[in-house]
Computed example of a mutant assay.
Amino acid sequence: MLSPKQIPTFFYDTKDFNTTVKLYKEKESLFDNVLQQMWKQAQEAKAFRYILNIRSSKSLKGKYKFLVQLNPERAQSRRTPESITSMQQSFNSIGFNFTKLTQQEILFDIGNSNTNDVIAINDSPLEQSHCLVLTERLKCLPQIMTEYSLYKVIELCLLSNSWSLRATFNSLCAHASVNHLHWHLYYLRHEMLLEYIDLSSFTSDVHLLINYPAKGFCLKLSSFKSIQNFVSQTFLVVSYLQSHQIAHNVYITRAKSRPSDDLYNDVRIYIWARKPSFGIKDTIAFIPAVCELFGHFSIKDENVYNNLTEDEVSNVLNDITHEDFLLTKDKLKHFLEK
């Protein structure tokens, strides 16, 4: 076990939150600077399985502007994912888990300096400053979202002054690779459709994402009077999926009102109910987890990268979300309104 004294602590307050940020014009916050600098130091210390090398990047032709990146090292060098067979799978202390991280891998504490809440590197990075947010790490909780972890991640997103910081969560049976509670945090400096796509009304607080291949639910910070209300209502949706053992993915992004806006004045949380991952065939050589549902694809094979089309991607996203969206929608609305 690492000594708390070995890990620096990042202290913050609500006055450090940035509710509005500007496109490509950000003056990075202290949080951004610390996160990026310590991530680079870990890279220099060779704490990663490989040096991030996105060999090529492009937007697919079509109306969804899917972002596709060629990153073969991630597929070749990453740790073998844990075998997940159930939404109720218990934590396994014998295999790899986040209590076994080295000091090089933990960047800093984001709690009370006891190394229970920390930010650590993802040693197989997808993008720049790709990290893991590990809340209540020493409790050895399985990969089942807690309201506390969601609140902590929202706070970290608001500490950033960058429009490009994103946070993601894969549930069990939705391509979570380690059954130990964690979120992903990374910078994606590409404008994405789901930052501003039109949504349909559902309940007073929850919206529907339907004009997109991956059908799902969305909550917006601007719909709530406080961060706590935003988190509580979001967690209510997630807890419904958890209690009914429905696999799900969650993506948090800055958002704006119109495509042409430079000002990001909102935060959106997308929630997808989806087919369980053990039942999905990897037919076009990408793993349809949370980033892919958002429109960000990491491709391992150059031939696939060169030939992938919007129609192929759309078909996969629709296949893994459409049925569960339809099965969940009305029951979830009844649950929320009750």
Rank of each mutant, 00 (worst) to 15 (best):
Q6W: 02
F11L: 15
K22T: 06
E26Q: 12
E28I: 07
S29G: 03
S29F: 05
D32E: 04
N33K: 15
N33A: 08
Q37E: 11
Q37Y: 03
Y50E: 10
Y50M: 11
I51H: 10
I54R: 09
S56D: 15
K61P: 09
L67C: 13
P81H: 05
S83A: 05
I84L: 01
S86R: 02
Q88F: 00
Q89R: 03
F91V: 06
G95K: 13
F96L: 11
N97V: 12
Q103F: 04
Q103K: 15
E105S: 08
I106C: 09
F108C: 01
D109Y: 03
D109A: 06
S113Y: 02
S113Q: 12
N114E: 14
N116C: 12
V118F: 07
A120P: 01
D123M: 12
L126V: 10
H130Q: 01
H130C: 02
L134S: 05
T135N: 02
E136S: 12
K139M: 09
L141K: 13
P142H: 04
L150I: 03
L150R: 03
L150E: 02
L159R: 09
L159N: 07
S160C: 07
N161W: 10
S162I: 11
H175D: 11
H180T: 05
L185G: 09
R189M: 10
S200Q: 10
S200R: 05
F202H: 00
V206R: 00
A214S: 09
A214W: 07
K215Y: 14
G216H: 04
G216A: 05
L219P: 14
S222F: 07
S226T: 14
N229Q: 15
V231N: 08
T234Q: 06
F235L: 04
L236H: 11
V237P: 07
Y240P: 09
Q242V: 13
T253K: 13
D261E: 14
D262A: 12
D262S: 15
N265S: 15
N265P: 08
I269C: 03
P276Q: 08
I280H: 00
K281F: 01
D282K: 08
L293Q: 11
G295H: 09
F297A: 06
I299K: 08
Y305V: 01
L308Q: 13
E310Y: 02
S314V: 01
S314A: 04
N315D: 09
N318S: 13
D319S: 12
D319K: 06
D324Q: 08
L326P: 01
K329D: 01
D330N: 12
L332R: 01
K333H: 02
F335I: 00
L336F: 00
